[in-house]
Design a protein around this nucleic acid. Structure first.
Length: 602
DNA sequence: GCCGTTTTCGGCCCGACTGTTTTCAGTCG
């Protein structure tokens, strides 16, 4: 049994420290990278390292082999790794603090800590700041006035907490990037502008924002970009390929610039993911080709054989040409995660991913019609939301206010409230005559109580068309019990949809555990649907579970959970989650025309 | 230290940028 509870982050940090020490010691770069890789891989694990260890599956983690697995086993058994302790002995604790400051890596951190005699981690940053202010750093070999100033501004950012990996929600990053892209496009020399990296792949959270542009005039592009009003500081500025800036909100933006004729190669290269590109490179090597951000060349070993025509770099205006050259279908960015997409593209078996245009309705909306709900009431009227849905060319939408609070109402009160809402919707439809080009459904979002009961009386169901059931309380219920609770809630005939199924809140809480095999199986057998919530800090069901659900043939529904009319536009984020989970139109029930949807929902 | 449709050895990404250099090292992605 574990002596101490190690989280994934603890273990990732430990391995990163090891790679730091090896870097300082000028050890093999490959060993350094190996620890780095293992660290990243463990940090991004879906499950807990402790569970994986208990199942004896450490070596199944990518980047973890026999060596590191043995060390981790020692760590989780005894609470420490003797070999690592020995390595750390020679390194001042302050080094591991300093290297978290922007612009300081392992070697500079070590040089600073030893030369300034700052050893303990406590107050290390304050001491470093004092050294910078008293111009002690510029006296150290390898540093100068400029780097002293850099370090000072790095320290200030660090002290403001900006270096902590506060990831943005997808929607925040998307807003910021769109604004920058609009600004960039106001310059006529900029022909194309797109996000790169995790934003282009539509991950649920985003670290840094990278943006690419194609232009024949890099100089004008760079001059234009650095005048963007929200830039606080230009970190670095190249001649024609890269500009790196910090905005006033502390976020770093990298702008990558390319000629139009090779824009495709660059877009591909910097969209990633890292794992996708590694796999793609290995796949290319087998064909004797070598990939880079500039295009495709014959690989080194192939070059020698055919020296005559080998040096030529093949460049690509767009990504389609790039992938086709490798004998692959173009792979949508959302799939580029190293999850079998290259093999699928080779066999022309990539899924035909669902698109925003396919969505024909939103079935999770909270209007401002008060039924004295248990949770927050919506802020927009039914009428406004209906009008917006019509603009979005939806065929149907469903209002699912929270059930009336149980503690504040008698059963009769609840029934009356449900009746009132049903009447209101009927009247609304009547008042619009036959000119409404959209079907309006009267739903309800119902709490599943800790005991698995739904929070309205049995005779209330006749007043609603369908129910979304979801967990809003007792989130720490253990997995097995929580699974029973959810299945019990879903057993009601009107309960068709499991709302925000993991309960996670990005950056706030993990959510509860469910036995997904049981839940998926239940849904397939009983005609129940699992929601993908487009709500920016939910995006729940998460992408990796969508992928499992699709394999299980579970039907999903993408909803916005809007509490205000403008939030209905968040649909695209839910769709991106579905796409990242390899979902096609057929997997998503709100792509169906109304008649077919009604057949399975009502 | 990891990894494997040309496997148990011999590969493993490297280019852009900056600052302190006088030809390069460190950091970053």
């Amino acid at each position: 049994m574990a002596v101490k509870l190690f989280t994934n982050k603890d273990v990732a940090d430990l391995l990163r420290r090891v790679s730091t020490v090896y870097t300082i010691n000028d050890d093999s770069t490959f060993r350094i990278q190996a620890y780095e890789r293992a660290s990243v891989s463990i940090e991004h694990l879906n499950g807990e390292i402790k569970d994986i260890w208990e199942e004896g599956k450490l070596e199944e983690i990518p980047g973890v082999g026999k060596g590191i697995a043995n060390y981790l086993d020692e760590l989780l058994r005894t609470g420490k790794v003797k070999h690592f302790e020995k390595l750390f002995k020679k390194i001042p604790e302050a080094v591991f603090i300093f290297e978290r400051i922007q612009g300081i890596g392992p070697k500079k951190a070590y040089s600073l800590a030893t030369n300034l005699k700052i050893t303990s981690g406590k107050d290390a940053v304050d001491k470093l700041k004092k050294a910078a202010k008293t111009e002690k750093i510029r006296e150290i070999e390898g540093f100068g006035e400029a780097s002293e100033i850099d370090i000072l501004s790095g320290i200030e950012a660090y002290l403001r907490g900006e270096t902590e990996e506060k990831r943005l929600l997808l929607f925040e990053a998307d807003m910021m990037a769109s604004e920058i892209i609009d600004y960039l496009k106001s310059n006529n020399d900029i022909l194309e502008a797109n996000p790169l990296g995790s934003l282009r792949r539509m991950l649920s959270t985003i670290g840094d924002i990278d943006i690419s542009v194609s232009t024949n005039n890099p100089k004008s592009t760079i001059d234009h970009f650095v005048k963007y009003p929200k830039i606080k500081q230009v970190l670095s500025k190249g001649e024609e390929t890269l500009v790196r800036v910090i905005l006033f909100n502390g976020k770093q933006i990298d702008l990558r610039i390319s000629k139009p004729e090779s824009y495709g190669s660059m877009l591909q290269y910097f969209t990633g993911s890292k794992q996708h590109n590694i796999n793609l490179r290995n796949y290319a090597i087998k064909k004797g080709l070598s990939l880079s951000e500039y295009g495709i060349t014959l690989a080194q070993n192939a070059k020698r054989k055919t020296q005559n025509d080998s040096e030529k770099l093949k460049i690509f205006r767009d990504e389609v040409g790039f992938y086709n050259e490798l004998g692959l279908q173009w792979i949508p960015p959302e799939l580029r995660e190293g999850g079998g997409e290259i093999a699928a593209a080779e066999n022309k078996q990539l899924p035909n991913l669902v698109e925003v245009m396919d969505i024909k309705g939103d079935l999770h909306l909270h209007s401002d019609f008060s039924i004295e709900p248990s949770h927050d009431l919506g802020m927009s009227s039914i009428d406004v939301m209906v009008k917006t849905a019509i603009e979005l060319k939806y065929e149907y939408l469903g209002f699912t206010e929270h059930n009336p609070s149980v503690s504040k109402h008698t059963k009769d009160n609840i029934i009356n409230l449900l009746k009132r809402k049903k009447d209101f919707i009927e009247q609304y439809k009547y008042s619009q005559g036959n000119k409404l080009p959209i079907k309006i459904l009267n739903g309800l979002e119902i709490d599943i109580s800790p005991k698995g009961q739904l929070a309205i009386p049995d005779n209330g169901y006749q007043y609603i068309d369908y129910a979304i059931v979801s967990i809003h309380s007792s989130l720490d219920t253990p997995k097995e019990e929580m699974t029973k609770r959810v299945l019990s809630g879903l057993s009601n005939t009107k309960a068709k949809i499991l709302g925000h199924p993991t309960g996670r809140l990005l950056g706030e809480r993990e959510g509860y555990q469910l036995d997904w095999d049981l839940v998926f199986d239940f849904c397939v057998k009983n005609n129940k649907f699992i929601e993908i919530s487009s709500w920016p800090n939910r995006l729940d069901l998460p992408d990796y579970l969508v992928k499992d659900a699709v394999k299980y043939n579970v039907k999903l529904i993408i909803n916005t959970d809007s509490h205000e009319v403008s939030q209905m536009l968040f649909m695209k984020y839910g769709v991106s989650v579905a796409r990242r989970g390899w979902a096609e139109r057929k997997n998503i029930i709100n792509t169906l025309p109304y008649k077919e949807l009604a057949g399975i929902l009502l």
